[in-house]
Amino acid sequence: MHDKTDQHDVLLERRGTAGIIRLNRARALNSLTLDMVRTVAAALDAFAADPAVATVVVMGEGERGFCAGGDIRALHESGRTGTPLAENFWRDEFRLNHRIATYEKPYVALMDGITMGGGVGLSSHGRHRVVTERTRFAMPETGIGYFPDVGATWLLAHAPAEIGTWMGLTGLEVGPADVIHAGLADVQVASFQLPELIETLAELPRGAVSRDVDSVLKNLGTDPGKGPLRTNHDVIERTFRLNSVRAIAEALHADGSDFADKTLHAMSTRSPTSLVLTLRLLREGKQSRSLAECLRREFSACLQILKSPDFYEGIRAAVIDKDRNPSWSPARLDEVKAETIDAFFQPVDIPLSL
């Protein structure tokens, strides 16, 4: 039985016992709008309440990406004009991230192609995370004057051997092997086998549980091999365990390996304020008791980011003028003031309801 509902930017379908959610902004790499976040949240509630639905599958339309993140152009405009859209988007997105992490039915995310920012929030919090040979995974926010959000300060902080710190500070893309190594995905399935995976999930009986899905994924899974982050495990652990961005940079410089040099170069192009903020958020995330605690902290930081010049400059350079040449303020790590960073950690009165 195939029941389809066309919500334009999100397509909903019930195929057999599978509830399928398809992000449908392929030309925009399925980047999320507020309406899309709300549609996905409503679909999860409906599928959870439907006894005929055993599993939920979330995927992106098109072959280029699962989801490239939030619609940062809209967030930029909202911050500039003082509308509530940015605040509403983050609040509803973070609630959705928490819903996914605590979802009562098997939740399967197909991280095929580009999976970044908000796409990580839709996938890596889920119970069953599937990558393919085409997966390009990143939390690139320090490159736009922002910070890893959507609960990434929980996810990255708990990745092994400071790999999450490397991901959060550099913002660089990683492939499927390293996504699995970081604990942010579970299994690799060849992209051409995704239709078979969906059909097999749709044939599971009502009341199927996570171990049934695990069995399906194990049967279709392939060996992703060993990625560069795993290969450079010791370098990352030795340098990124330090507790200041400057100390990390100095350790990378002293290491002198090709990997360390490339890492240092990437960090040198990022917003200094974002680097310092991100490292503190990750360190606090590691000490936090729950994802919800991290999401609340991130939400407070989001409201402060709307007052940060680097947020607007980073988005201008990346998606508006597209000159890829942001002018950060301040431009140097040693010019980032402690009180500037402290302002991101002020509790806000608006409840996140997590």
Results as ranks from 00 to 15, higher is better:
residue 106 P to E: 00
residue 103 Y to D: 01
residue 288 S to Y: 05
residue 57 V to I: 13
residue 144 I to P: 00
residue 175 G to Y: 08
residue 25 R to G: 04
residue 191 S to C: 08
residue 178 D to G: 13
residue 49 A to F: 09
residue 219 N to F: 11
residue 334 D to M: 04
residue 29 L to I: 06
residue 92 D to V: 03
residue 167 M to T: 04
residue 180 I to V: 12
residue 338 A to K: 11
residue 314 G to R: 06
residue 248 I to N: 12
residue 285 G to F: 10
residue 256 G to N: 11
residue 265 H to L: 12
residue 298 E to S: 07
residue 188 Q to L: 15
residue 18 A to W: 07
residue 319 V to S: 10
residue 39 T to Q: 13
residue 130 V to D: 05
residue 303 L to S: 02
residue 272 P to F: 03
residue 233 H to I: 02
residue 177 A to H: 06
residue 181 H to M: 11
residue 175 G to F: 09
residue 265 H to Q: 12
residue 252 L to F: 12
residue 185 A to H: 07
residue 173 E to G: 08
residue 74 A to W: 09
residue 7 Q to F: 10
residue 87 E to K: 14
residue 125 H to I: 02
residue 166 W to H: 14
residue 58 V to K: 05
residue 295 L to I: 01
residue 29 L to G: 02
residue 20 I to A: 01
residue 146 Y to M: 11
residue 234 D to R: 15
residue 282 L to F: 05
residue 306 L to Q: 11
residue 265 H to V: 11
residue 277 L to D: 06
residue 99 R to A: 15
residue 205 P to N: 12
residue 184 L to F: 05
residue 119 G to F: 02
residue 283 R to G: 02
residue 167 M to K: 06
residue 195 P to Q: 08
residue 306 L to G: 06
residue 76 H to Y: 15
residue 349 D to S: 12
residue 242 L to K: 14
residue 178 D to W: 12
residue 187 V to E: 07
residue 116 M to W: 07
residue 238 R to V: 05
residue 173 E to T: 14
residue 72 I to Y: 08
residue 192 F to T: 12
residue 179 V to Y: 05
residue 65 G to F: 10
residue 85 L to S: 04
residue 339 E to K: 05
residue 230 R to D: 13
residue 197 L to Q: 09
residue 302 C to Y: 14
residue 227 G to D: 03
residue 108 V to Y: 00
residue 342 D to V: 02
residue 88 N to G: 14
residue 260 A to T: 01
residue 73 R to H: 12
residue 260 A to N: 04
residue 346 Q to M: 03
residue 172 L to T: 09
residue 224 P to R: 08
residue 100 I to P: 05
residue 340 T to L: 14
residue 218 K to L: 14
residue 341 I to Y: 07
residue 96 L to Q: 03
residue 316 R to I: 01
residue 265 H to S: 09
residue 109 A to R: 01
residue 33 T to M: 00
residue 270 R to Q: 11
residue 95 R to F: 04
residue 149 D to K: 02
residue 182 A to K: 09
residue 8 H to F: 13
residue 212 D to T: 08
residue 287 Q to S: 12
residue 5 T to R: 15
residue 21 I to V: 14
residue 124 S to N: 10
residue 62 G to M: 11
residue 24 N to V: 01
residue 32 L to N: 00
residue 247 A to L: 06
residue 328 W to C: 07
residue 97 N to Y: 07
residue 31 S to P: 01
residue 33 T to I: 00
residue 199 E to L: 10
residue 230 R to Y: 12
residue 262 K to F: 05
residue 38 R to C: 11
residue 128 H to A: 12
residue 339 E to P: 00
residue 149 D to N: 08
residue 158 H to F: 03
residue 156 L to P: 00
residue 93 E to G: 10
residue 226 K to M: 10
residue 108 V to A: 03
residue 114 I to V: 13
residue 242 L to R: 15
residue 157 A to I: 03
residue 230 R to K: 14
residue 115 T to Y: 07
residue 348 V to P: 00
residue 259 F to A: 09
residue 188 Q to R: 13
residue 69 G to Q: 11
